[in-house]
Design a protein around this nucleic acid. Structure first.
Lengths: 226, 226
DNA sequence: CCGCAAGATGAACGGCGCTAACTTAGCGGC
DNA sequence: GCCGCTAAGTTAGCGCCGTTCATCTTGCGG
């Protein structure tokens, strides 16, 4: 009822509305935790502006969501950098990064869902690439640092993809199936991250295509214990 | 235009419409590859019936989608059983199962998306559990067979969760980010499955919480090569 | 103080999920 | 053979959605 009386923007200041619209969309998503609640009408109402005004700055609803995704991925990128900052060694940094990735997703489940689980029309191809680029490139960099110390020997990009798949898998499962009887979440997350980090290193070292007879495999694995 | 002139069902035969509606929804989803295309109106039109008739057999659209999910998971369960049938040993069976899981998802991307990536309201809790139950229990069983041969020693459910996370991760990434410059898909999938299978086994054998100094870890891993 | 373009809007269109009130038709009983 | 009950299905409409077009308002350079 007591909508803040928004004054029309000054001559060259039309762009300011764009920021307010984007912020309103992000807030709405965070508050309601429901993508459905982020309708063009709801966003316009919150900003205190008419519906068509949204279209002055975003081609359509998808463009608005794309902008939201961009912000989310930027925040994620920052978070990943921070997480791996104080790690003891590159392998520990990778582990910290993986855990940070999943926890970021769990803390912003609807944002993560929009970015990673919604169908994006072909027009969003460029956005997708750019969006994933920053954070993913950083992950590849982290893998390279591990490779330099002998942990990994194969293509860092492929190793990074494996890590990404594991992290996304656990995050996506926890978000999409909240009613599943999960065990301790933090433990599950860290175990999965370690599984990926170790598994990729181990897979490189197993001879052949990994389909060696079972007894030999178990014996080789057991030699790890020592 | 030439809609098949649907005759009203006989007295006790009202339920038959339910099956037709469900089939129409599945077909529509498979043909268009777009969840948006599965609207109550579109389904009704395809069956050759008025819109409210849908609600005679499904409480709401979500209930219809839940029924679709149930069918999908049943098909997946069948596929997993078939995949692990002719495997050389339980570990190979696990690997075959993982690959089959991902390929099933890639062949039915929109079905998989609805089941695993859409927000399900709390009312779907029971459905979710039941749905995931069959296939997941079978996965746990497969893990148990590996554990009996010494591959895994920790809780089979937790191991199965790790495998599920990896398989879902790679499937979900490939489906949600089709424009990402993926390398060879089949290879990526199999590598990720092996990563999980080996990684879970390796993680159990690394002493402590896995954060041992890097040189020792690399040395332990290298002993695998032999 | 005038004119114009940038900024913002009111009204409407077609499609969506869903519902209340109504009609049609199969079938057992007389 | 007709009656009445009720299962099966429809018509009309509500409020929401994303989107568009013609229109109005207003800051500001001349």
């Amino acid at each position: 009822m007591s909508e803040p009386v928004r004054r029309r923007a000054a001559r060259g200041r039309g762009v300011e509305l764009r920021g307010q619209v984007l912020a309103a969309a992000m807030d709405l998503l965070a508050e309601t935790g429901d993508e459905q609640a982020v309708s063009v009408r709801a966003v316009a109402l919150r900003v205190g502006v008419s519906v068509p005004s949204i279209y002055l700055h975003f081609a359509d609803k998808q463009a608005l969501l794309d902008a939201v995704c961009e912000q989310v991925f930027e925040a994620l990128h920052v978070r990943l950098r921070a997480a791996s900052e104080g790690a003891a060694d590159p392998f520990a940094a990778l582990r910290a990064q993986g855990n940070a990735y999943v926890h970021f997703a769990l803390e912003n489940p609807e944002h993560y869902r929009i970015v990673m689980m919604l169908r994006h029309p072909p027009t969003a191809e460029a956005a997708d690439r750019a969006i994933a680029g920053g954070a993913f490139d950083y992950l590849v960099e982290s893998v390279r640092r591990c490779a330099a110390l002998g942990v990994y020997t194969s293509d860092p990009v492929e190793v990074a993809l494996g890590l990404w798949a594991a992290a996304h898998g656990v995050a996506a499962l926890l978000i999409a199936k909240p009613y599943f009887p999960w065990p301790d979440v933090d433990g599950f997350v860290d175990r999965t991250i370690c599984m990926a980090g170790l598994g990729l290193a181990a897979a490189e070292r197993v001879p052949g295509d990994g389909s060696l007879p079972l007894p030999e495999l178990v014996a080789a694995l057991d030699s790890l214990t020592r």
